[in-house]
Design a protein around this nucleic acid. Structure first.
Lengths: 249, 249
DNA sequence: CCAAGTTGTCTATTTATCTAGACAACCCAA
DNA sequence: TTGGGTTGTCTAGATAAATAGACAACTTGG
């Protein structure tokens, strides 16, 4: 178990129970508490974090609502089974096939699409100077659970019908194929993390203020011609990014 | 500018000003507000998020304390220059040389080292069954700013003096070299994100509850022999991970 | 200079969160 | 069966956060 300094929540913008809740999540995700293990009792937790028992209870209740733990009157609070998805990132990253063995069938749903001016930075990366771009907002789910939300940018001249194709096929690879593009590679990926916006929280069914992993990636043709700029937000609670390091031989 | 639904902060464990503060940070990091731009006025922000002006002020104050914005009485609040570090992750990831052009000299400081049993998962990856392991806790700083904290695990038989070498050289590569290891490669990297623990917040000089990017990586000899398991926590406010996708040719 | 608009500061009040204590309901091992 | 330990629930009070309003200090453009 981690050594927990008393919660110094002085005007941090986070309530005491939320901070405790996150620390407890660490003990679970970090492997210090395994499925079936009993958490310390509410009184012990309260003393350890220097708060009232009710505050500790609220922290536990938050984890219970997520399904991470389960409380049983008279006996204690126990860690339930919890799965973390691995999303593989590499040269041939494809949305619909990257979720490892856990679920082979990820489907993309198009929320919105429009033709508009891309932000200057994205227009530069896509190599479209004056031209307008296609923006597509998608969500991806697998196994009945929302995995991620994405904002795609395409060159309107290269793949004019990409939005319709995306809606029809539910797959970026298939939609590009329908536009005559048989192969593409991942050119760059940048990863960050931040709090989810309110919209993202709703789409991913997260509590407000939950954390998202953010990837910004550029896909190109094998010859390097930019194809797609895509920003994807994953629930950090449910997903880890598994980065591929191909051997140089 | 983003469309901001009114802040539904109902018992989320996050104070209203913190949620607003994070949304505003997005407008800056996301490129909707550039260096020198003026933020909406306090009254406008208060109305947009459905809170009192004082609450909006507190959100701005939090960003100002980070140095992300600057308020000028009578004229408004403006976005200051803010640098985001890029930490490159690839086959030859090295701690001390990965910080791009911004600062060539990152130094590692050893906080603590001990010989103990590694967690089973880590022992398995390092290929040390019964043997004990060396755990080293380090912090890394560059340009006067704390960048990351790491927990390293080494095989006690392969590199018995790694801790002393790390303290002396301030570099993993140099310390391994002193142990007779001239080359090593990154075998796997997994990226996640979570709230910082209280200890991490202190080491990285973050506000409590800030977000950290977490990488768990395995470094091996060129022949695949495991060398080091290292978990690194970066401040998500200050760092993005730039993932290398080597071409297959 | 002037007027409109902006941030800075103060006081007071309302609302939400946390603390404190007590006891019931329940589980489990002796 | 019994007794100690656990979670669930209730009441009340203390502390922190958010709201409300007013005005000062300052900047900017006309």
């Amino acid at each position: 178990m981690t050594d927990h300094p008393s919660v110094s929540r002085s005007n941090s913008g986070y309530s005491a129970w939320r901070l405790i809740s996150e620390e407890l999540r660490l003990d679970i995700d970090g492997g210090r508490l395994h499925t079936g293990d009993r958490l310390p009792t509410e009184n012990v937790l309260a003393e350890r974090f220097g708060v009232n028992r009710h505050t500790a209870r609220q922290a536990i209740a938050a984890l219970a609502e997520e399904g991470l733990v389960e409380s049983r009157r008279g006996s204690g609070t126990f860690v339930t089974g919890h799965a973390v998805r691995l999303h593989r990132i590499g040269l041939r990253t494809r949305m619909t096939t990257s979720l490892g063995d856990q679920s082979a069938s990820a489907t993309i749903r198009v929320l919105h699409n429009a033709i508009e001016d891309a932000p200057s930075e994205i227009a530069r990366r896509l190599g479209i100077d004056g031209r307008r771009a296609i923006r597509v907002e998608t969500t991806r789910s697998a196994g009945g659970q929302q995995i991620s939300v994405s904002t795609h940018w395409f060159d309107v001249e290269r793949v004019p019908d990409i939005a319709t194709a995306l809606r029809r096929t539910g797959s970026v690879t298939a939609a590009l194929h329908a536009s005559g593009i048989d192969d593409y590679v991942r050119a760059s990926t940048v990863v960050g993390a931040r709090h989810a916006t309110i919209t993202e929280s709703e789409l991913l069914t997260l509590g407000p203020g939950a954390i998202v992993l953010v990837t910004e990636a550029l896909d190109t043709l094998p010859d390097g011609t930019p194809l797609q700029h895509v920003m994807t937000r994953f629930s950090a609670q449910r997903v880890r990014l598994d980065i591929e390091h191909p051997r140089a031989d």
